[in-house]
Design a protein around this nucleic acid. Structure first.
Lengths: 191, 191
DNA sequence: GTCTATACGCAGATAGAC
DNA sequence: GTCTATCTGCGTATAGAC
Protein backbone atom coordinates (compact mmCIF):
# COMPACT_ATOMS: atom_id res chain seq x y z
CA UNK A 1 0.00 0.00 0.00
CA UNK A 2 1.18 3.50 -0.81
CA UNK A 3 0.86 4.96 2.69
CA UNK A 4 2.17 2.04 4.78
CA UNK A 5 5.64 3.54 5.30
CA UNK A 6 4.22 6.96 5.96
CA UNK A 7 2.01 5.52 8.70
CA UNK A 8 4.90 3.63 10.25
CA UNK A 9 6.95 6.83 10.33
CA UNK A 10 4.12 8.71 12.05
CA UNK A 11 3.51 5.93 14.57
CA UNK A 12 7.20 5.82 15.49
CA UNK A 13 7.60 9.59 15.54
CA UNK A 14 4.53 9.88 17.77
CA UNK A 15 6.10 7.53 20.30
CA UNK A 16 9.58 9.09 20.16
CA UNK A 17 8.27 12.68 20.37
CA UNK A 18 6.46 11.60 23.52
CA UNK A 19 9.39 9.77 25.10
CA UNK A 20 12.25 12.08 24.08
CA UNK A 21 10.58 15.33 23.09
CA UNK A 22 10.15 16.79 19.62
CA UNK A 23 13.45 18.61 19.28
CA UNK A 24 15.55 15.92 20.91
CA UNK A 25 14.25 13.36 18.39
CA UNK A 26 16.30 13.31 15.18
CA UNK A 27 15.50 11.87 11.78
CA UNK A 28 18.19 9.29 12.45
CA UNK A 29 16.34 8.18 15.61
CA UNK A 30 13.08 7.71 13.74
CA UNK A 31 14.73 6.13 10.69
CA UNK A 32 16.57 3.47 12.67
CA UNK A 33 13.45 2.69 14.74
CA UNK A 34 11.34 2.33 11.60
CA UNK A 35 14.10 0.49 9.72
CA UNK A 36 14.41 2.80 6.73
CA UNK A 37 17.11 5.15 5.47
CA UNK A 38 17.19 8.84 6.31
CA UNK A 39 16.88 9.80 2.66
CA UNK A 40 13.62 7.91 2.29
CA UNK A 41 12.02 10.32 4.74
CA UNK A 42 11.82 13.14 2.33
CA UNK A 43 9.68 11.20 -0.05
CA UNK A 44 6.97 11.20 2.63
CA UNK A 45 7.63 14.47 4.48
CA UNK A 46 9.23 17.69 3.27
CA UNK A 47 10.51 18.87 6.66
CA UNK A 48 10.61 17.88 10.31
CA UNK A 49 7.73 20.29 10.94
CA UNK A 50 5.68 18.29 8.43
CA UNK A 51 6.21 15.19 10.56
CA UNK A 52 5.14 17.16 13.63
CA UNK A 53 1.92 18.19 11.89
CA UNK A 54 1.32 14.58 10.92
CA UNK A 55 1.91 13.40 14.48
CA UNK A 56 -0.46 15.99 15.94
CA UNK A 57 -3.16 15.06 13.41
CA UNK A 58 -2.64 11.41 14.27
CA UNK A 59 -3.04 12.21 17.96
CA UNK A 60 -6.17 14.25 17.26
CA UNK A 61 -7.72 11.33 15.40
CA UNK A 62 -6.77 8.81 18.10
CA UNK A 63 -8.07 11.08 20.85
CA UNK A 64 -11.38 11.55 19.08
CA UNK A 65 -11.71 7.78 18.81
CA UNK A 66 -11.03 7.38 22.52
CA UNK A 67 -13.56 10.06 23.47
CA UNK A 68 -16.17 8.43 21.22
CA UNK A 69 -15.52 5.13 22.96
CA UNK A 70 -15.96 6.70 26.39
CA UNK A 71 -19.14 8.30 25.15
CA UNK A 72 -20.54 4.89 24.22
CA UNK A 73 -19.20 2.90 27.17
CA UNK A 74 -20.12 5.40 29.91
CA UNK A 75 -23.64 4.92 31.29
CA UNK A 76 -24.03 8.56 32.34
CA UNK A 77 -22.03 11.79 32.06
CA UNK A 78 -20.50 11.39 35.54
CA UNK A 79 -19.19 7.93 34.62
CA UNK A 80 -17.68 9.34 31.47
CA UNK A 81 -15.89 12.07 33.40
CA UNK A 82 -14.55 9.36 35.71
CA UNK A 83 -13.17 7.61 32.61
CA UNK A 84 -11.21 10.77 31.90
CA UNK A 85 -9.93 11.03 35.47
CA UNK A 86 -8.85 7.40 35.59
CA UNK A 87 -6.70 7.69 32.50
CA UNK A 88 -4.09 9.05 34.91
CA UNK A 89 -3.95 5.64 36.57
CA UNK A 90 -4.36 3.66 33.36
CA UNK A 91 -1.36 5.46 31.82
CA UNK A 92 0.33 5.94 35.21
CA UNK A 93 3.60 4.26 34.33
CA UNK A 94 4.12 6.26 31.13
CA UNK A 95 3.08 9.46 32.86
CA UNK A 96 5.60 8.96 35.65
CA UNK A 97 8.30 8.39 33.02
CA UNK A 98 7.38 10.92 30.33
CA UNK A 99 4.58 13.15 31.67
CA UNK A 100 1.32 13.87 29.87
CA UNK A 101 1.75 13.62 26.08
CA UNK A 102 -0.51 16.62 25.49
CA UNK A 103 0.86 18.94 28.16
CA UNK A 104 4.54 18.23 27.56
CA UNK A 105 4.24 18.74 23.80
CA UNK A 106 2.34 21.99 24.24
CA UNK A 107 4.90 23.26 26.76
CA UNK A 108 7.84 22.35 24.56
CA UNK A 109 6.38 24.01 21.48
CA UNK A 110 5.52 27.13 23.49
CA UNK A 111 9.16 27.47 24.52
CA UNK A 112 10.38 26.87 20.99
CA UNK A 113 7.95 29.55 19.87
CA UNK A 114 6.84 26.97 17.34
CA UNK A 115 4.07 27.70 14.85
CA UNK A 116 2.43 24.36 15.68
CA UNK A 117 1.86 25.20 19.38
CA UNK A 118 -1.81 26.21 18.92
CA UNK A 119 -2.19 23.01 16.94
CA UNK A 120 -0.91 21.03 19.93
CA UNK A 121 -3.21 23.00 22.23
CA UNK A 122 -6.15 21.90 20.09
CA UNK A 123 -5.57 18.45 21.58
CA UNK A 124 -6.49 20.02 24.92
CA UNK A 125 -9.54 21.59 23.29
CA UNK A 126 -10.77 18.15 22.27
CA UNK A 127 -10.82 17.05 25.92
CA UNK A 128 -12.13 20.43 27.05
CA UNK A 129 -15.15 20.37 24.76
CA UNK A 130 -15.90 16.73 25.49
CA UNK A 131 -15.78 17.38 29.24
CA UNK A 132 -17.86 20.53 28.86
CA UNK A 133 -20.55 18.50 27.09
CA UNK A 134 -20.64 15.98 29.94
CA UNK A 135 -21.02 18.76 32.53
CA UNK A 136 -23.75 20.36 30.44
CA UNK A 137 -25.67 17.10 30.42
CA UNK A 138 -25.32 16.93 34.19
CA UNK A 139 -27.03 20.31 34.31
CA UNK A 140 -24.18 22.71 35.03
CA UNK A 141 -25.15 25.01 32.12
CA UNK A 142 -22.94 28.14 32.10
CA UNK A 143 -20.43 26.67 34.54
CA UNK A 144 -19.67 23.68 32.32
CA UNK A 145 -16.63 25.09 30.55
CA UNK A 146 -15.09 26.33 33.80
CA UNK A 147 -15.55 22.92 35.39
CA UNK A 148 -14.05 21.26 32.31
CA UNK A 149 -11.00 23.52 32.46
CA UNK A 150 -10.71 22.98 36.21
CA UNK A 151 -10.51 19.22 35.96
CA UNK A 152 -8.27 19.39 32.90
CA UNK A 153 -5.90 21.58 34.92
CA UNK A 154 -6.01 19.28 37.92
CA UNK A 155 -5.04 16.31 35.75
CA UNK A 156 -2.17 18.28 34.23
CA UNK A 157 -0.77 19.18 37.63
CA UNK A 158 -1.00 15.59 38.81
CA UNK A 159 0.87 14.41 35.71
CA UNK A 160 3.63 17.02 36.15
CA UNK A 161 4.31 16.20 39.81
CA UNK A 162 3.91 12.43 39.40
CA UNK A 163 6.56 12.73 36.69
CA UNK A 164 8.87 15.03 38.66
CA UNK A 165 8.86 12.79 41.75
CA UNK A 166 7.99 9.49 40.02
CA UNK A 167 5.32 9.20 42.72
CA UNK A 168 2.56 6.65 42.12
CA UNK A 169 0.90 7.06 45.53
CA UNK A 170 0.44 10.80 44.94
CA UNK A 171 -1.11 10.11 41.55
CA UNK A 172 -3.66 7.65 42.96
CA UNK A 173 -4.47 9.89 45.90
CA UNK A 174 -5.18 12.82 43.60
CA UNK A 175 -7.35 10.70 41.32
CA UNK A 176 -9.48 9.86 44.37
CA UNK A 177 -9.66 13.56 45.27
CA UNK A 178 -10.76 14.46 41.76
CA UNK A 179 -13.54 11.85 41.88
CA UNK A 180 -14.60 13.16 45.31
CA UNK A 181 -14.61 16.69 43.90
CA UNK A 182 -16.89 15.50 41.07
CA UNK A 183 -19.32 13.94 43.55
CA UNK A 184 -19.30 17.15 45.58
CA UNK A 185 -20.12 19.23 42.52
CA UNK A 186 -23.02 16.95 41.63
CA UNK A 187 -24.22 17.09 45.24
CA UNK A 188 -24.14 20.89 45.20
CA UNK A 189 -26.27 20.89 42.04
CA UNK A 190 -29.15 19.44 44.03
CA UNK A 191 -28.67 22.06 46.81
CA UNK B 1 36.01 40.64 40.71
CA UNK B 2 36.89 37.10 39.72
CA UNK B 3 33.35 35.73 39.56
CA UNK B 4 31.56 38.63 37.86
CA UNK B 5 31.53 37.01 34.41
CA UNK B 6 30.55 33.63 35.81
CA UNK B 7 27.58 35.23 37.54
CA UNK B 8 26.52 37.06 34.41
CA UNK B 9 26.68 33.77 32.46
CA UNK B 10 24.51 32.04 35.05
CA UNK B 11 22.00 34.87 35.18
CA UNK B 12 21.66 34.91 31.39
CA UNK B 13 21.56 31.11 31.09
CA UNK B 14 18.89 31.01 33.81
CA UNK B 15 16.69 33.36 31.80
CA UNK B 16 17.31 31.68 28.44
CA UNK B 17 16.79 28.15 29.79
CA UNK B 18 13.44 29.37 31.06
CA UNK B 19 12.39 31.14 27.90
CA UNK B 20 13.75 28.71 25.28
CA UNK B 21 14.39 25.50 27.19
CA UNK B 22 17.71 23.93 28.18
CA UNK B 23 18.46 22.00 25.02
CA UNK B 24 17.27 24.69 22.61
CA UNK B 25 19.64 27.22 24.20
CA UNK B 26 23.11 27.11 22.66
CA UNK B 27 26.41 28.48 23.92
CA UNK B 28 26.23 30.99 21.10
CA UNK B 29 22.86 32.22 22.42
CA UNK B 30 24.23 32.75 25.90
CA UNK B 31 27.53 34.20 24.69
CA UNK B 32 25.94 36.83 22.49
CA UNK B 33 23.45 37.78 25.22
CA UNK B 34 26.24 38.14 27.79
CA UNK B 35 28.57 39.83 25.30
CA UNK B 36 31.51 37.44 25.51
CA UNK B 37 33.07 34.97 23.09
CA UNK B 38 32.17 31.30 23.01
CA UNK B 39 35.71 30.31 23.91
CA UNK B 40 35.63 32.29 27.12
CA UNK B 41 32.90 30.00 28.43
CA UNK B 42 35.18 27.12 29.06
CA UNK B 43 37.25 29.07 31.48
CA UNK B 44 34.16 29.22 33.74
CA UNK B 45 32.34 25.97 32.92
CA UNK B 46 33.68 22.67 31.62
CA UNK B 47 30.48 21.53 29.89
CA UNK B 48 26.92 22.61 29.21
CA UNK B 49 25.77 20.32 32.02
CA UNK B 50 28.00 22.31 34.37
CA UNK B 51 26.08 25.45 33.41
CA UNK B 52 22.83 23.61 34.06
CA UNK B 53 24.02 22.63 37.54
CA UNK B 54 24.99 26.24 38.16
CA UNK B 55 21.61 27.49 37.00
CA UNK B 56 19.73 25.00 39.20
CA UNK B 57 21.84 25.96 42.22
CA UNK B 58 21.18 29.61 41.48
CA UNK B 59 17.45 28.92 41.34
CA UNK B 60 17.60 26.94 44.57
CA UNK B 61 19.28 29.87 46.32
CA UNK B 62 16.85 32.44 44.90
CA UNK B 63 13.86 30.28 45.82
CA UNK B 64 15.11 29.86 49.39
CA UNK B 65 15.44 33.62 49.65
CA UNK B 66 11.88 34.12 48.40
CA UNK B 67 10.47 31.55 50.83
CA UNK B 68 12.37 33.18 53.69
CA UNK B 69 10.85 36.54 52.70
CA UNK B 70 7.33 35.07 52.65
CA UNK B 71 8.03 33.53 56.04
CA UNK B 72 8.85 36.96 57.47
CA UNK B 73 6.21 38.99 55.65
CA UNK B 74 3.27 36.60 56.21
CA UNK B 75 1.39 37.21 59.45
CA UNK B 76 0.17 33.63 59.78
CA UNK B 77 0.65 30.33 57.91
CA UNK B 78 -2.55 30.77 55.87
CA UNK B 79 -1.32 34.16 54.63
CA UNK B 80 1.98 32.61 53.65
CA UNK B 81 0.25 29.88 51.66
CA UNK B 82 -1.74 32.62 49.92
CA UNK B 83 1.58 34.24 48.97
CA UNK B 84 2.49 31.00 47.23
CA UNK B 85 -0.84 30.78 45.43
CA UNK B 86 -0.68 34.38 44.23
CA UNK B 87 2.70 33.96 42.61
CA UNK B 88 0.66 32.56 39.69
CA UNK B 89 -0.84 36.01 39.21
CA UNK B 90 2.34 37.90 40.05
CA UNK B 91 4.23 35.98 37.37
CA UNK B 92 1.16 35.53 35.19
CA UNK B 93 2.58 37.09 32.06
CA UNK B 94 5.74 34.99 32.09
CA UNK B 95 3.77 31.86 32.94
CA UNK B 96 1.43 32.38 30.01
CA UNK B 97 4.45 32.78 27.74
CA UNK B 98 6.88 30.21 29.12
CA UNK B 99 5.07 28.12 31.74
CA UNK B 100 6.33 27.45 35.26
CA UNK B 101 10.14 27.58 35.41
CA UNK B 102 10.27 24.63 37.81
CA UNK B 103 7.75 22.35 36.10
CA UNK B 104 8.94 22.92 32.55
CA UNK B 105 12.61 22.30 33.42
CA UNK B 106 11.77 19.14 35.35
CA UNK B 107 9.62 17.85 32.47
CA UNK B 108 12.27 18.61 29.86
CA UNK B 109 15.05 16.92 31.83
CA UNK B 110 12.82 13.89 32.46
CA UNK B 111 12.34 13.45 28.71
CA UNK B 112 16.04 13.92 28.03
CA UNK B 113 16.69 11.28 30.68
CA UNK B 114 19.12 13.84 32.08
CA UNK B 115 21.13 13.15 35.23
CA UNK B 116 20.16 16.56 36.63
CA UNK B 117 16.38 15.83 36.65
CA UNK B 118 16.25 14.93 40.37
CA UNK B 119 18.26 18.08 40.95
CA UNK B 120 15.56 20.10 39.18
CA UNK B 121 12.86 18.27 41.15
CA UNK B 122 14.57 19.40 44.35
CA UNK B 123 13.28 22.88 43.46
CA UNK B 124 9.80 21.42 43.90
CA UNK B 125 10.91 19.90 47.20
CA UNK B 126 11.84 23.34 48.48
CA UNK B 127 8.24 24.55 47.93
CA UNK B 128 6.82 21.25 49.14
CA UNK B 129 8.64 21.33 52.48
CA UNK B 130 7.92 25.02 53.02
CA UNK B 131 4.19 24.47 52.34
CA UNK B 132 4.17 21.36 54.54
CA UNK B 133 5.57 23.42 57.42
CA UNK B 134 2.83 26.03 56.98
CA UNK B 135 0.12 23.33 57.04
CA UNK B 136 1.71 21.76 60.11
CA UNK B 137 1.54 25.07 61.94
CA UNK B 138 -2.13 25.35 60.99
CA UNK B 139 -2.63 22.03 62.79
CA UNK B 140 -2.97 19.55 59.92
CA UNK B 141 -0.32 17.23 61.38
CA UNK B 142 -0.05 14.02 59.29
CA UNK B 143 -2.04 15.46 56.39
CA UNK B 144 0.37 18.38 55.89
CA UNK B 145 2.54 16.82 53.20
CA UNK B 146 -0.48 15.62 51.22
CA UNK B 147 -2.00 19.09 51.32
CA UNK B 148 1.31 20.62 50.27
CA UNK B 149 1.56 18.27 47.28
CA UNK B 150 -2.07 18.89 46.42
CA UNK B 151 -1.69 22.64 46.16
CA UNK B 152 1.67 22.31 44.41
CA UNK B 153 -0.02 20.09 41.83
CA UNK B 154 -2.92 22.47 41.41
CA UNK B 155 -0.56 25.37 40.70
CA UNK B 156 1.33 23.26 38.15
CA UNK B 157 -1.83 22.41 36.28
CA UNK B 158 -2.93 26.03 36.23
CA UNK B 159 0.46 27.07 34.82
CA UNK B 160 0.36 24.40 32.10
CA UNK B 161 -3.12 25.29 30.84
CA UNK B 162 -2.65 29.05 31.20
CA UNK B 163 0.42 28.61 28.99
CA UNK B 164 -1.25 26.28 26.47
CA UNK B 165 -4.23 28.60 25.95
CA UNK B 166 -2.56 31.88 26.96
CA UNK B 167 -5.61 32.34 29.20
CA UNK B 168 -5.37 34.95 31.95
CA UNK B 169 -9.01 34.69 33.09
CA UNK B 170 -8.61 30.96 33.73
CA UNK B 171 -5.47 31.60 35.75
CA UNK B 172 -7.17 34.16 37.99
CA UNK B 173 -10.29 32.04 38.42
CA UNK B 174 -8.21 29.07 39.53
CA UNK B 175 -6.22 31.21 41.97
CA UNK B 176 -9.52 32.18 43.59
CA UNK B 177 -10.57 28.52 43.73
CA UNK B 178 -7.29 27.57 45.38
CA UNK B 179 -7.76 30.28 48.03
CA UNK B 180 -11.35 29.09 48.59
CA UNK B 181 -10.07 25.52 48.93
CA UNK B 182 -7.59 26.70 51.57
CA UNK B 183 -10.35 28.42 53.55
CA UNK B 184 -12.46 25.26 53.32
CA UNK B 185 -9.65 23.11 54.64
CA UNK B 186 -9.12 25.46 57.58
CA UNK B 187 -12.87 25.46 58.21
CA UNK B 188 -12.94 21.67 58.24
CA UNK B 189 -10.16 21.65 60.85
CA UNK B 190 -12.53 23.26 63.37
CA UNK B 191 -15.31 20.76 62.49
C1' DG C 1 9.44 4.12 -3.32
C1' DT C 2 13.89 3.29 -1.41
C1' DC C 3 18.50 3.69 -1.43
C1' DT C 4 23.63 5.91 -1.12
C1' DA C 5 26.25 9.87 -1.20
C1' DT C 6 26.78 14.28 0.02
C1' DA C 7 26.06 19.40 1.11
C1' DC C 8 25.96 22.72 4.67
C1' DG C 9 25.49 24.71 9.07
C1' DC C 10 25.67 24.69 13.87
C1' DA C 11 26.24 22.21 18.04
C1' DG C 12 29.63 21.40 21.96
C1' DA C 13 34.37 21.43 22.94
C1' DT C 14 39.69 22.38 22.62
C1' DA C 15 44.31 24.80 21.73
C1' DG C 16 46.91 28.34 22.24
C1' DA C 17 48.02 33.52 21.53
C1' DC C 18 47.53 37.78 24.08
C1' DG D 1 40.59 36.08 31.96
C1' DT D 2 39.45 36.81 27.27
C1' DC D 3 40.12 36.23 22.70
C1' DT D 4 40.49 33.83 17.74
C1' DA D 5 40.97 29.80 15.27
C1' DT D 6 39.87 25.26 14.77
C1' DC D 7 38.29 20.33 15.54
C1' DT D 8 34.73 16.88 15.25
C1' DG D 9 30.23 15.14 15.11
C1' DC D 10 25.52 15.42 14.17
C1' DG D 11 21.55 18.01 12.75
C1' DT D 12 18.33 18.88 8.62
C1' DA D 13 17.98 18.70 3.93
C1' DT D 14 19.11 17.59 -1.18
C1' DA D 15 20.65 15.02 -5.55
C1' DG D 16 20.44 11.44 -8.13
C1' DA D 17 21.09 6.18 -8.98
C1' DC D 18 18.34 2.00 -8.84
Amino acid sequence: MATATRDRILETADLLFYQQGFEATSFADIASAVGISRGNFYHHFKTKDDILDGVINRRLANTEQMLDRWEIEGDDPADRIRSFIHILIFNGEKIRKFGCPVGTLSSELAKLNHAAQPNAASLFTLFRNWLRRQFERLGFADKSDELAMHILGRSQGVATLANAFNDDAFLRREVDLMCAWLDDQIGLLRH
